[in-house]
């Protein structure tokens, strides 16, 4: 099963390396990973998407919790939650393609954020499914470059991952 795990950790040099090292060392899979500062400058928040059997996921969360710099973590997929990812795609857009790409972009509520006579750069946000669907829809066009942020997530309702 796919899991989204969000981790609050001390904003210290080397903390990220420990998380990444843990996954490499124990052979756990990481589909995406994103890390950024939070409102509290002493903390950073890391969100990772991983796949595995329940037993493996249990080990992953236990080992993450064991890392000295990890303050708190939550497996967002255990409850109702919102996930978002931002993707930027640069596509070749000439001739008839130009209109076609723009239409697809509109359908997905994407935004064209940079234009040249031969290219569009489109920004799309959504959950992983939507972002993937957009990529599929563009399959007729020539993709020049794709940049994805990886998933960030937050629990619905009152629950919050904070100190």
């Amino acid at each position: 099963m796919r899991h989204i795990i969000s981790v609050l950790m001390e904003n210290e040099a080397g903390a990220l390396a420990r998380v990444v090292g843990l996954f490499a060392q124990r052979g756990y899979n990481i589909e995406s990973l994103n890390v950024a500062p939070t409102d509290d400058e002493t903390l950073s928040r890391l969100t990772l998407v991983t796949k595995g059997e329940d037993r493996v996921i249990e080990q992953i969360t236990k080992h993450l919790n064991k890392l000295i710099e990890v303050v708190k973590l939550v497996d967002l997929t255990e409850g109702s939650h919102i996930e978002r990812e931002l993707m930027m795609v640069k596509v070749r857009a000439t001739g008839a393609q130009r209109e076609e790409v723009k239409r697809t972009c509109d359908i997905f509520r994407g935004q064209i954020i940079d234009v040249t006579p031969t290219t569009y750069t489109i920004q799309v946000t959504g959950n992983e499914e939507k972002v993937n669907a957009f990529m599929d829809a563009l399959s007729g066009a020539t993709l020049m470059e794709v940049a994805r942020t990886g998933v960030a997530g937050i629990a619905r309702g009152d629950k919050s991952l904070s100190l």
Binding site: A13, G14, A17, R18, I68
Partner: peptide, 14 residues
């Protein structure tokens, strides 16, 4: 040494 020892320590610090 931080990188080398990371997988074989409970913790390390510089």
């Amino acid at each position: 040494m931080m990188g080398l020892s990371r997988p074989i320590v409970k913790h390390n610090m510089s």
